[in-house]
Design a binder for these strands. Structure first.
Lengths: 386, 386
DNA sequence: GCGTTTATCTTTCACGTTGGAAGAAACTGC
DNA sequence: GCAGTTTCTTCCAACGTGAAAGATAAACGC
């Protein structure tokens, strides 16, 4: 309920260890309100005082910086990919504490995949971080996801339809469960912990086997009435010469998705198997041909991003894509292309902040999003007793 | 400040004459809160009781419907077009009470154009509606406008740059002044009084001599850090064969703007002068060639709109364009094209609600937007005295 | 015709959140 | 050790809200 608590916790997250007096200025709240909010958040184990963190130099009573307490709670995350689930335990700053990948038993059976993942995640928690109280469980998946109902409407690669995730896993784990799409989860992560920290608008373009986008305006993700906002997979922003499985021409996904591009590179003789990792590895190993090939993809992604950027005009554009995230030359190609084709200046175009941990962070961010929106809702009876 | 007053006034606007009890249900407020809000709004002359409006049939104490009081206040509007200003006095329901067009004296002198318009508008008010208290002045213009600073950054056709409108006209008229772009003003009008009534997301595409869009998400217009959101004029969504004055190919504005399309139709021999009105008049007079020509434009607009729609996934798409607004066949062509090229079903694609009055309503809506956002800010000392 | 029933609207009161002001606390400088 | 300074806390009044009780105005039933 208390709006102040949410604002204060968000400001602490952004500004690191920070004194209450500075918080009051940063949040536009009275000192009294900040004290009250900090007390409440401290009682819940979300905030700690760290007197030694920022030594006080000046005159007067020394300040007592507060910071996010990452030692008490964890957030669990499940990312449902094509061949495996990524299980994660993430702290309140989005730091990945534990990560494990488990292959799907029976990919056609959502119930089995999800309950197995949840069970293993609980076991992982009991084994590795028994002292951390789990706040909730976030589930991220590529494709069309309806976070309002906790449903994977259409999983991008597994063919699942209208899979009710939230109710299933809440019953199974007893934790609050939130579900969201890949692209939106990562957008929120960028906004909380990454490049878009503190920004109120953001366009996040995710290019993997799935291609998707997330639109953040006014500080909140825009879902659309069908939760389909940002579905750019089949926009005609790609190569017009490519015919997509959907029947249309020039679909973005058919042009630049991992699978599509790997196939294209394979046919062009750049790699010997149609696997994107082969292409990236070759580029990392120094192959000029592979580098040029990936830069070409980055430019195609950039051309599409330029259109979306100019239309939406967000504060930041973040692109999550294997090549640009690992190869500076690709990131530069992307940036140049966007700058050339749009009003965006180079400094608002950024590669994902999360490196290898993208999937792990995404899954956790789904739940952390909810925490930072309403921190006082964490009324965990287990914790209250300690 | 009171959030309830804004919510209540908005609900009254949407639901016409409505009983307080029904308002409480519609707004999710307690009856007490509604009573208080209505009393405050009544005192300000924004609301009236209309006991006879909805005769009560059932048992129990009869309800007393309340409605927007359109008899006390007016909002002034100035729309700055290429050759003239449209001056308007609009009531609180967006109804145009007075409209007058005045040609620019010296189009190159923003100061002269704006002050003349403001002076004439004040005179018009004194002459025609002296009993109505002016709440404020809205200014709408095509191009790049920064409403946060009240500045026309770049007028689309007059070549004005960084014209400070708000401060100039506040000083001149003593009224609160708000400035916004054409596309956003009309989007807000659609949301308040038109097709998008009560919707929280909306994409409005405006096609005139200027081509622009407005993005509404979460109930509020998205501006972007430079107030440039929705600038679709130079997106490559038009005919790739067309080269734009900006140097790029396929720009939307170079393809479908009034001027560009009229020129194209003129060259094709459909009309004898490159004037869009000739084309529309011919079509209205029954010319099959002109109709086909305008339907082709509607389809091109639809193709561009489809991409933007699928990306943003708004609840409604509203297109303001001369042909589709006046010719059912064009509206149908647009609808069909959007439905074919996007996920949008036909019923979310709508032509503008305001017919001949588009410009007049747009100018007024800029200020009405502010009124409905914070009705209690109308502390007009003149009114308080009555 | 008069009390009962029903629904609308208003008033009263308690609650929660906030900012302002005063006070307590902790340190420096003289 | 005392003034000066800044941080943080406590107390209190203001505000907006919902719940509940009360007032009001009609139809209904006998």
């Amino acid at each position: 309920m208390s709006a102040a608590a949410s604002v204060v916790l968000g400001a602490v997250l952004r500004h690191g260890p920070i004194a209450r007096s500075a918080l009051a200025r940063a949040c536009g709240l009275s000192p009294a309100a900040v004290t009250r909010a900090c007390a409440a958040l401290s009682d819940l184990g979300l905030l700690v005082e760290v007197p030694e963190a920022v030594p006080y130099q000046g005159i007067g009573r020394p300040h007592v910086p507060v910071d996010i307490d990452t030692t008490r709670h964890v957030v669990a995350g499940i990312h449902v990919a094509h061949l495996h689930c990524t299980l994660t335990l993430v702290d309140l700053r989005g730091g990945v504490l534990v990560r494990r990948e488990i292959p799907h038993g029976t990919p056609d059976d959502p119930h089995e995949v999800l309950t197995t993942a949840a069970d293993q995640l609980l076991a992982l928690h009991a084994e590795r971080l028994p002292g951390h109280i789990p706040i909730g469980l976030g589930v991220a998946a590529g494709g069309w996801v309806d976070p309002a109902h906790g449903v994977i409407v259409r999983h991008a690669s597994l063919g699942w339809r209208d899979t009710e995730v939230r109710d299933l896993l809440t019953a199974r784990t007893g934790l609050p469960v939130r579900v969201d799409s890949h692209a939106r989860a990562l957008a929120r992560a960028e906004q909380l912990f990454g490049a878009a920290r503190g920004r109120e608008s953001l366009l996040h373009l995710f290019v993997g086997n799935v291609v998707g986008a997330a639109i953040v305006t006014g500080g909140a993700a825009h879902l659309g009435p069908r939760a389909a906002a940002g579905d750019v997979a089949h926009l005609a922003l790609g190569d017009p010469a490519v015919t997509c499985a959907c029947g249309k021409r020039g679909c973005l996904e058919a042009t630049v998705s991992d699978r599509a591009w790997a196939t294209r590179a394979f046919r062009a003789g750049v790699i010997s198997r149609p696997l994107i990792f082969d292409l990236v590895d070759a580029a990392l190993a120094g192959s000029a041909e592979a580098k040029a090939n990936l830069a070409e993809r980055a430019r195609l992604v950039g051309r599409a991003a330029a259109v979306l950027f100019d239309f939406l005009d967000p504060e930041v554009l973040v692109v999550t894509e294997l090549g640009t995230n690992r190869l500076p030359s690709c990131a530069a190609a992307l940036r140049d292309e966007v700058a050339a084709m749009s009003r965006a200046s180079g400094d608002v175009v950024l590669a994902s902040s999360f490196g290898e941990d993208v999937l792990a962070v995404a899954a956790g961010a789904v739940q952390l999003d909810a925490l930072y929106a309403d921190p006082l809702s964490i009324r965990n009876p287990v914790w209250q007793g300690v």
